[in-house]
Amino acid sequence: MSADKIVPLKPADPRGRMVARAAREIAPGMVVNLGIGLPTQVVDHLGPDFPVCLHTENGMAGVGPTLPHELADRNLIDAGGAYVSPIPGCSYFDSATSFALVRSGRLDLTMLGAFEVAENGDLANWKIPGRFSPGAGGAIELAQKALRVVVMTTHCDRKGNPKLKRRCTLPLTAAGAVMRIFTDLAVIDVTPAGFTLRECAQGVSVAEVTEATGAPLHLPEGDIPTF
């Protein structure tokens, strides 16, 4: 193959890259709730010696790795229904205690999925009227009360429409809640000015991120790091 035919190096797995980048959001010592779906994959990037307390709202602090069916304890699941393991020092509690922890400021970080995020931090992730209305579960309290709320989502929906918008059109989960968004294209902060680009995925240009974002994207001075 001649040099001029070399294809630019694209990330082999943009989602995997996004998950790995989002995992770096977790600081040692945090109490963290990972939402159902993509956010739970962050666990794979937390080593056995990394000090973190994962919370699941159905009543456990100190959630360990998921288990295959043959090793599962029928009484031990996370809120997404996955069979999980205990780690030394973990605890179990009822649903009232579980959300007391969330509402009273003991949850340092939650990482949630999203249908839409608005430039003012509004989050919609529980209902699409007429199509999807299973109920919000614990999402409202997580989004409204975690000390830090970040979202992990593909930048656009399956039809290619931006999920990051000026305003949410779907029913809100919480208003002004989201502080940072990890996507397959970029890391974006919600600031008083709106969406602000912090990092681009490898092989993704600033122009591509701007094009895929449904609201003005502010660019800080200097180089944009890649992840």
């Binding site: 159905n58 009484n75 031990l76 009822d94």
Partner: peptide
């Protein structure tokens, strides 16, 4: 384990 949930309240 997580079979507590809503049972105690």
């Amino acid at each position: 384990a997580t079979a507590r949930n809503f049972n105690p309240p």
